[in-house]
Design a protein around this nucleic acid. Structure first.
Length: 189
DNA sequence: CGAGTTTGACCAGCGC
DNA sequence: GCGCTGGTCAAACTCG
């Protein structure tokens, strides 16, 4: 893997249709990402996830792989013209912007209300925990996410979303909504 | 039986 | 060019 950005695009208490709709919002090509690449810039609080309290925080040492392209200008190459990770042969290499969240949790999978199907798992260099790859199972929805636990701090799970959901949330996530409502985000620009 | 998971193989990009 | 690595595919498998 080469990159991800860490951000929180907007407070979760808006009129969004679903707790995670901000994941979609941020994907509007405008890229209003509240991206940060320093741990101290980003600090959110969550509590009461499915398993334990979770807190968002970004240990710099493990998040250094901030996308160079994004680092150079907050998702500078706006048109999604991101290299690597192309599709199959011949097709243009277009990658959607990705958004990574770090959560402190005992469980790898955050219940964000969408249904995901795992399609791969890979051992990652310099990390004793494997990375899992998930795709949204909703028909026509092409959202992917990667879940990886940090080897330096196995209490931290990094979830990277790619793409935007083209549908409503699929199951009740009052729980998660509650969590989001308690989030605090500190971002500098 | 359908939906989801596991896992090895495959492919493409990148650095040397 | 070659090897390494990340990302995806797909067949086999598990589970409800």
């Amino acid at each position: 893997m080469d990159s991800f950005s860490t951000l929180f695009p907007c407070p979760p208490s808006t009129s969004s249709p679903s707790p995670f709709s901000f994941l979609s919002m941020v994907n509007n090509s405008s890229h209003h990402d509240f991206q940060t690449h320093k741990p101290s810039d980003f600090l959110g609080l969550m509590s009461g996830t499915t398993a334990t309290a979770a807190s968002m925080e970004v240990p710099a040492s493990d998040i250094t792989n901030v996308d160079s392209l994004q680092a150079k200008g907050l998702l500078g190459s706006d048109d999604g013209e991101v290299k690597s990770c192309g599709k199959k042969k011949g097709e243009k290499k277009i990658r959607k912007p990705r958004y990574a969240f770090q959560t402190r949790s005992q469980v790898d999978i955050l219940d964000d209300g969408y249904r995901w199907r795992k399609y791969g798992q890979k051992a990652v260099k310099n990390n004793r925990f494997p990375r899992s790859y998930y795709r949204c199972t909703h028909q026509g929805c092409n959202v992917k996410k990667q879940v990886q636990r940090l080897s330096k701090d196995e209490g931290i799970v990094v979830t990277t979303y790619e793409g935007m959901h083209s549908h409503q949330i699929e199951k009740s996530t009052d729980n998660f909504e509650h969590i989001l409502s308690q989030m605090q985000v500190y971002a500098s620009f």
